[in-house]
Design a protein around this nucleic acid. Structure first.
Lengths: 222, 222
DNA sequence: CCTTGGATCTTGTCAATGGAAAGATTCTGC
DNA sequence: GCAGAATCTTTCCATTGACAAGATCCAAGG
């Protein structure tokens, strides 16, 4: 049926890309950080992470293709293996970066405003702005939950909330403080998740952060 | 390395299953609704839906394999196509059933208790008991959002909440009622999602419904 | 300058999967 | 009974993730 085309896999594309720069005298230097453009282009791991987050944000985690990712980065289909091991490793790296970014975001909100409610607003803003990371962070089946770097990033991100939570309710005992934190986390996480799953389309989302503030006013904690 | 096994695909299993019941005199009648057991075994759609929900609950939606599903049901790998079209169609059917079940559950809770807080508890109970359905219901990328049956089931499920929400806050205007409903939905949805994503492992989950009641006490709505 | 080891990337290959096409079998209504 | 519809099977193909083996580049020491 399809005999005329003798196994011309997509690899042909990358092969062509490789062959065209054999000792080209005029160094292109398209990006300032690329040393040789094919081998060891320096930040492949970062490029792949960014492309993964973007792809997940646009098409969901289930539709992510390692091979398509490698193609957009201009490397062979097996190149990602060296940096992430397998697909779960890539998701784990995305989630780890996500928890680190989230922790930094919430920490800076707290130091700048000192307002517990604004931390909740920041949580929702993070989910909307880093949709790719956020989606992976809360799908444990996709990643390796035991990865030490993931556990560490997660732990540090949540440790950021100890001080704000204590400040919001100084008179609560451990049990009540824990429940108050869980209630706060639940409402912001729920609102973020609903927004990302197309369940707030009927609502005016002109300013998501303002909507978040109004919703959070129904929480007794703040 | 693996030469000794000459391409024994899973199809061999279903073939064997077919050949063993060629005109067996003693009608097995394992399930009362199966007419011929191979062709037209009556409730393949139902069997596939149940198997899908179970598989998703155990391994996540991303790991669902249509072929494995068909194998467990004892049919060929293309049989599901006729009932669901493609993988997105199957997810759509699971989500549709989920919204219908959720609507029925919440409605019966309201008629039995008349307590708005208990509806929230019922939401979380549903998520934990029908984990497979719940996971799919809020991953729009997996399904066909425009499917009329899905839209209908979704609409009717949420319409169930109109009366309870109005009863919980009779003095609120439309704007405030809408926000109160969103806040309630957010906190129960968030708690359910966090529970399903292994983020409540540190908390005593001996009685999830009791935990839900304690968390919901932080909501000004109830 | 040269070499040696490690890091990084490529090529080739395989099994599993989703999907499509075409045909076989069974059921239903007339 | 019979024609058409519904249901299921068989066969085939492109894509994907994973693995193995090899090629290329870099860094450091002689």
């Amino acid at each position: 049926m399809r005999a005329p085309t003798p196994t011309v896999t997509p690899a042909a594309t990358s092969t062509a890309a490789v062959s065209l720069n054999a000792e080209s005298p005029t160094a292109p230097a398209s990006t300032a950080t690329s040393s040789s453009d094919t081998y060891h282009h320096g930040d492949l791991r970062r490029v792949l992470l960014d492309a993964a987050a973007k792809s997940i944000a646009e098409n969901g985690a289930a539709a992510l293709s390692l091979r398509a990712l490698a193609a957009t980065a201009g490397v062979s289909h097996a190149a990602p293996v060296h940096h992430f091991g397998d697909k779960a490793g890539l998701f784990t790296a995305v989630a780890t970066e996500g928890f680190t970014l989230l922790g930094e975001e919430l920490h800076s909100v707290w130091t700048e405003t000192g307002d517990f409610l604004e931390i909740g607003v920041g949580y929702i803003r993070f989910a909307l702005e880093h949709r790719g990371h956020f989606e992976v962070m809360f799908q444990p089946e996709l990643m390796n939950l035991a990865d030490p770097r993931l556990v560490d990033a997660k732990t540090r991100a949540f440790a950021t909330l100890d001080e704000p939570l204590a400040a919001a309710g100084p008179d609560r005992d451990d049990q009540q403080a824990h429940l108050a934190g869980l209630a706060s986390w639940s409402i912001v996480h729920g609102l973020a998740t609903l927004a990302l799953s197309d369940n707030l389309s009927q609502i005016d989302l002109a300013d998501p952060e303002d909507l978040a503030r109004h919703v959070l006013m129904f929480l007794r904690v703040v």
